[in-house]
Amino acid sequence: MDVLTIFAGVLLFLAVSLLFSVIKIVPQGREFTVERFGKYTKTLSPGIGFLTPFVERIGKRMNMMEQVLDVPTQEVITKDNAMVRVDGIVFIQVMDAARAAYRVDDLTYAIAQLCMTNLRTVVGSMELDEVLSQRDSINTRLLHVIDAATEPWGVKVNRIEIKDLTPPTDVTNAMARQMKAERERRAVVTEADGEKQAAIARAEGAKQAAILEAEGRKEAAFRDAEAREREAEAEARATAMVSEAIARGDVNAINYFVAQKYVEAFADLARSPQQRTVIVPAEMGALVGTIAGIGEMVGLAKAQQQDAPQPARPTTTARRSSVPPTA
């Protein structure tokens, strides 16, 4: 009885082992290669698969999802003999499980080494300034080269990114000083531009002010000239009227004209800045006599024109006009 139980147990174990060796469950994102007597025959896709017992077996279990590989840090000499430390990451995806399994040994290590060698080649062909400022160009060149190299392995390189670029310490300090100097230069240029614009604005303002001032002087001069012209015209008309009155023998007009000129001259004498004392003439008779004499002569001329001599009338007129017009 014990022997039968052991035998049955052994048979059950063999049956289960055979069942598991024949039926294979492939998870999503994976592919299994099948080998018959050590030779690749087919690839099992995700799902359930069946193998020939004792003949076929699973060869390689390949990851078909996109994978991220680290590119180890390495020191690279640039074209201008500067030492930089570079590392990066590469994104790959297995497209053909059979070629990735059987055409290269240790796929991830091979791709990492390929990235390192090409990274040294690309960075070494560029100067330090180009390396620091053209990461996109480096990534594009590496992607093109490595993708072409991994195509026979059934691997697609989707992208490569430079993760870190570290120049030497002395170069970093020099770059910091250069950046500071550039910032200071920009500040000086900006300040100079501001001063230039301010000077231009001030000059434009002074120009406009000068133009307006000149136009004002021009307008004032025009107004003054016009006023003098009007004044001259008025004086001319007044003189003409006085002349006409004199011609008609009007002694009052002569008296008014002479008295006005006398008063204006006396006022100018009083307003003189060098005049300290104004002496009023004590004898005004000379002025009155002069006016009376002129009046008599005008009256005589008028009488002669009218052919009617009237000798007493000019004297009377002169007597009436003997009083000074202005006290």
Rank of each mutant, 00 (worst) to 15 (best):
I6R: 13
I6Y: 14
F7R: 13
G9Y: 10
V10S: 12
F13P: 00
V16Y: 12
L18T: 07
L19S: 09
I25L: 15
I25Q: 08
P27W: 02
R30K: 14
R30C: 14
R30W: 11
E31R: 12
F32M: 09
T33P: 07
T41W: 00
T43E: 07
S45N: 04
P46C: 11
I48S: 01
P53F: 06
V55P: 04
V55M: 10
R57E: 07
M62L: 13
N63D: 15
M64R: 06
L69K: 08
T73M: 11
E75W: 03
V76C: 06
N81Y: 03
M83N: 10
R85K: 10
R85C: 02
V86E: 05
I89V: 15
I92P: 08
V94N: 05
D96F: 06
A97K: 14
R99T: 13
A101S: 15
Y102F: 14
Q113N: 05
Q113S: 05
T117Y: 07
T117I: 11
N118R: 02
N118G: 00
L119P: 00
T121W: 10
T121E: 13
V122N: 01
M126N: 03
L128S: 05
E130F: 11
S133R: 08
S133N: 06
D136S: 07
D136A: 08
N139D: 04
V145Q: 12
A149I: 10
W153C: 07
V157P: 07
I160P: 06
I160V: 13
K163F: 11
D164K: 15
D164C: 12
P168M: 01
P168A: 03
A176E: 05
R177S: 09
R183Y: 07
E184F: 11
R185T: 01
V188P: 06
E191P: 00
A192G: 05
A192D: 01
D193W: 13
G194V: 03
G194F: 02
A203T: 03
E204L: 12
A206Y: 04
K207W: 07
Q208H: 06
Q208C: 00
A210D: 01
I211P: 01
E213N: 11
A214Q: 11
E215W: 03
R217T: 03
A220T: 10
A225G: 09
A227T: 09
R228M: 10
E229F: 13
E231G: 11
A232M: 08
E233Y: 07
R237N: 04
R237F: 06
A240D: 07
M241F: 09
S243H: 11
E244M: 13
A247N: 13
A247D: 12
R248T: 01
D250K: 09
D250P: 00
N255W: 11
Y256P: 00
Q260G: 14
Q260C: 08
K261M: 12
Y262Q: 09
V263H: 05
A267M: 11
A270C: 11
A270K: 09
Q275P: 03
Q275C: 15
P281T: 01
M284I: 13
M284T: 15
A286V: 15
G289N: 12
T290K: 06
A292G: 10
G293V: 11
I294P: 08
M297T: 07
V298N: 05
G299Y: 04
A301W: 02
D307Y: 02
Q310A: 05
T316I: 14
T317G: 04
A318Q: 00
S321Q: 10
V323N: 09
